[in-house]
Nucleic acid binder design. Structure first.
Length: 629
DNA sequence: CTAGGGTTAG
């Protein structure tokens, strides 16, 4: 029987001329089944019709029907409906309480759920295994260890800790509160473990953020199998984010896990599993295998916002921004899926890199319309996008005129914005303000403020910030931070001091450090220093053609043609070719690309003429402020 | 005979 017909029967009552007033559907058992069908078929309509029928035949006080109604309404996010049914029950038993508490918890209303739990205890209904499992999950969600301990002690009193599900829930609560030791202790004490127990333990290790536990974690996975337990979809979805190229040597785990999913048919019961596929896409993206991720994506039977966002993220990270933006459109147009906060944060960097201010503004507008603009991550992404798209003013507007709790990233983004626009003094003063109001700078902040100093020639300010941060905040200088210092000294002509700094650095000088020294040497015409730096750079990156070309240009400028020829020969032997650099501009949605002395574009002549005009105008006009928006 | 629970993402 189809759902439509069921709904008609459920609501027909005595008025229908096709059905008599009491149909076979009017038994409590049938009504219960209808409510069951309403949830499996995602039909709030059927739930409501059945509810109406329950009222009209006077079954409102039936405990089974009431409980099922409460949980059905909650499953649709219609918690007010659940509450209403609950309130009207004269005799509230444990099951009824449990389903309402769980309904609130499932809809993220954790504090209300806990209030209900207190109310339940006050009205002398004893919590059972089901209650305690739910409430300990609530404690984990709000990360309140005291509440969690309270629930734990109640579980010990009632003997519920012996229940596997309660113990699993408590384990996961302790994991979320950062008490991995307690998770472990509970695990050891569980009389009958199931896969969920192992998964709760693995989740604790995986989400602890402590990478030194990774080896232990893979050991646990091994033990789980030795113990005769099969890894299930939950297990795999926790392991996939830890796999992939990012963590050296773990790439094979990623592929192995993919094989495991296919071999064991995980989630294949009703098509492919969206969650697992999203994790796979993410894993392949992080392993620089976006195309493989795309294969997974294309094979999916249905995609949700997680899957789309994972795919978009993959393309953004890879630098294929056009594809990222086009997927962002497809998600809405083809699948009718609305982006959420995370999708917006993922796609904004694509606008930044394409300097697509209009696209960025559209996304900002979308966030405002959908009332999603209450998220630090989104604000931070907007600050970054606006500053990279050339609008320092819009970035400032977000930073100064929006009400949101600023984190280290917000400050760093705005400091970066000033640096990017050549406003070193503003960057330093904002940095001081950041420290003054109590935010802790991190590596990224430091790189931002140092490179701002660098570009604005604020050498002393930069050096004093560097020294104070290293001593006060215990930030270990990275190669990137050191490159900033070298850049700063080099630009100001203190090349010997820069070299001295490189010699005393605590980290191994990487390509960026030598590159910075080359930069300074070129600016101040120090040829010996350039050659020294290049020799280190080429040693570090023997396969990077840019280095050979730059060095060859250096030799050419001092007319040492033999050295030039030698370098060209080495490049040829190594089969190295430099891809020519290019610039591009988007006009009316079409991107036009230009390389050096490019005459291929139909409007090339016009373009060069305009360029000449601009250059002569600029020469006469003095400094120009490039703030168009 | 019929109700209520835990572990997973971008």
């Amino acid at each position: 029987m189809n759902l439509h017909l069921l709904a008609r029967k459920a609501s027909s009552g005595g008025t229908s001329r096709y059905y008599s007033s009491a149909t076979a559907l009017d038994s409590p058992l049938s009504l219960l089944h209808l409510l069951y069908l309403s949830t499996t078929h995602y039909s709030l309509h059927l739930a409501k019709q059945t509810h109406a029928r329950i009222i009209s035949i006077g079954f409102t006080q039936n405990p089974f029907l009431a409980t099922k109604l409460v949980s059905a309404y909650a499953a649709f996010g219609y918690v007010t409906g659940s509450k209403l049914v609950f309130e009207l029950m004269e005799d509230k038993n444990v099951c009824l309480w449990n389903s309402l508490i769980n309904g609130y918890a499932k809809n993220g209303a954790n504090y209300e759920a806990f209030d209900l739990f207190n109310g339940m205890c006050r009205s002398n209904v004893l919590p059972d295994d089901f209650t305690l499992a739910t409430v300990s999950k609530v404690a984990g969600e709000i990360g309140d260890l005291n509440v969690g301990k309270l629930v734990h002690s109640k579980s010990i009193q009632s003997g519920s800790v012996l229940d596997t599900v309660v113990a699993n829930s408590l384990m996961s609560m302790y994991g979320k509160c950062g008490e991995l030791g307690e998770t472990r202790k509970l695990f050891d004490e569980i009389p009958r473990r199931n896969a969920g127990s192992w998964n709760a333990l693995i989740a604790g290790y995986a989400n602890s953020g402590d990478c030194s536990l990774r080896n232990d974690l893979w050991e646990i996975v091994k033990c789980m199998q030795i113990d005769g337990m099969k890894l299930d979809g939950f297990t795999i979805s926790m392991l996939l984010p830890l796999s992939g190229l990012e963590e050296t040597g773990k790439w094979d785990y990623g592929r192995e896990l993919h094989c495991y999913i296919l071999k064991n048919g995980l989630g294949m019961g009703c098509g492919s599993d969206v969650h697992l596929d999203s994790c796979l896409i993410d894993m392949y993206s992080r392993s620089n295998k976006v195309v493989t991720g795309r294969n997974v994506f294309d094979r999916m039977k249905c995609r949700n916002v997680y899957a789309w966002t994972a795919m978009i993220n993959g393309y953004v990270d890879k630098g294929d921004l056009d594809e990222a933006l086009s997927l962002f459109r497809d998600m809405q147009v083809r699948d009718g899926i609305e982006p959420n906060k995370v999708s917006l944060v993922s796609v904004l960097p694509a606008c930044s890199s394409l300097a697509g201010l209009m696209a960025g503004k559209q996304i900002h507008g979308y966030a405002i319309r959908k009332d999603m603009n209450h998220d630090v991550a989104l604000y931070n992404a907007l600050i970054d996008m606006y500053s990279k798209c050339g609008s320092l003013n819009c970035a400032k507007q977000i930073f100064y005129n929006s009400f949101f709790l600023k984190d280290a990233i917000s400050w760093s983004s705005m400091i970066n914005a000033y640096g990017l626009h050549g406003k070193g003094e503003e960057a330093v003063s904002l940095y001081d303000q950041m420290l003054w109001q109590g935010s802790k700078p991190d590596m990224i902040t430091l790189v931002g403020v140092l490179s701002a100093c660098c570009r604005s020639g604020l050498v002393n300010e930069g050096l004093s910030i560097y020294n104070s941060v290293i001593n006060k905040y215990g930030i270990k200088p990275t190669a990137e931070i050191c490159a900033c210092v070298v850049d700063m000294l080099g630009r100001s002509g203190q090349l010997d001091r820069a070299l001295e700094f490189i010699k005393t650095m605590s980290v191994e000088p990487g390509p960026s450090v030598w590159g910075a020294l080359i930069n300074g040497s070129v600016m101040h015409g120090n040829i010996e220093m350039q050659e020294l730096a290049y020799s280190f750079l080429i040693q570090l990156e023997p396969e990077n053609p840019s280095n050979y070309i730059s060095l060859s240009n250096l030799h050419a400028s001092s007319k040492r043609w033999d050295a030039v020829a030698e370098l060209r020969k080495v490049m040829k032997e190594k089969g190295l070719r430099k891809t020519p650099g290019c610039s591009w501009i988007s006009i009316n949605g079409k991107t036009h690309c230009f390389s050096v002395a490019d005459k291929a574009h139909p409007y090339a002549n016009l373009t060069y003429q305009m360029l000449d005009d601009l250059i002569s105008t600029m020469k006469g006009a003095g400094p120009i402020d490039f703030e168009y928006f």
